[in-house]
């Protein structure tokens, strides 16, 4: 048997990740649970908490982007993993010659790109209807993609336990996400919070995403861009690492 070179091996992992990504996009995008949790929910949140208060278009856009990256990206993992575990098709991926991290990265991309797509739509709508403009388009691209990946990984982490139906995951996942939403600086800007509230808000990943998006859309933020980016990147690594640990554990327990 000829030994593959390291390069071939990596190229192979990429092509597997890509194949898996395409399959997931084809199978899961626009399925009822994805639309419900990933599209309807963030829009509902946005309209119920923001529009009525006569928000400036740009602030509105920054907030909508934070909401969509958060809810849309984190939904994908929570929908796909339990469905595939129940159908036992997840075993196919586990038995295929590919690294676990390849599967996790490919899956993160599924949620992330769903969120990026929705964000792009929100942005275009905001621009067309209200003439909202963006201060730093390049930074916005980075901000949306990075937040989308972090939150997508969060969704995967939550779904890496033992549950076998999206219903079983959605409860804990929602219980986790709503507090993170309400303690974050998304509805009340950080600089208008009291000391305590602000301290608590730093516990939510959403705070950093919102601040980064504020930098990109409005041109001003409360913290440094570097801090926001560093925290989001670190969280991405932690979430993926945690998910990989949980999945290894379930290979021991046998579900």
């Amino acid at each position: 048997m000829s030994e593959e070179s390291r390069m071939d091996r990596i190229r192979g992992e990429f092509s597997q990740a890509w194949a898996l990504f395409l399959k997931d996009v084809r199978t899961y995008y626009l399925t009822p649970p994805m639309v419900m949790w990933g599209l309807a929910l963030p829009l509902f949140m946005f309209f119920s908490f923001s529009v009525r208060r006569g928000l400036a278009p740009q602030t509105g856009i920054a907030r909508l982007l934070a909401l969509t990256t958060f809810f849309t990206a984190s939904s994908a993992g929570s929908v796909i993993f339990p469905l595939e575990r129940r159908a036992r098709t997840y075993d196919r991926l586990m038995a295929a010659p590919m690294a676990l991290i390849t599967i996790l990265l490919s899956r993160s991309s599924v949620g992330a790109f769903f969120a990026v797509g929705i964000s792009l739509l929100s942005l275009l709508t905001g621009w067309a209807l209200f003439g909202a403009s963006v201060a730093q388009p390049a930074l916005l691209t980075v901000a949306v993609i990075l937040s989308a990946y972090s939150f997508s990984a969060l969704g995967i982490l939550v779904a890496s336990g033992s549950a076998q139906s999206p219903g079983q995951i959605m409860m804990p996942s929602t219980l986790l996400r709503w507090p993170l939403l309400f303690i974050s600086g998304i509805f009340v800007p950080l600089d208008r919070m009291g000391v305590w509230a602000r301290g608590v808000s730093y516990l939510s990943p959403l705070t950093y995403a919102q601040d980064l998006l504020n930098h990109a859309v409005l041109g001003t933020g409360v913290q440094s861009i570097v801090l926001d980016v560093a925290v989001l990147a670190l969280l991405l690594i932690l979430f993926l690492g945690g998910a990989s640990k949980l999945q290894r554990r379930s290979r021991k327990l046998g579900y």
């Binding site: 192979g12 092509s15 597997q16 194949a19 898996l20 399959k23 084809r26 199978t27 159908a87 036992r88 098709t89 075993d91 196919r92 991926l93 295929a96 010659p97 590919m98």
Partner: peptide, 25 residues
């Protein structure tokens, strides 16, 4: 071949096979 058949129900027979081929490079 596991105890319970685990095909991708959302994909056609052909797509199931093609996808498997890609998973195995």
């Amino acid at each position: 071949v596991p105890e319970e058949s685990n095909v991708y129900t959302e994909l056609s027979a052909q797509a199931n096979l093609l996808f498997t081929g890609r998973l195995y490079r």
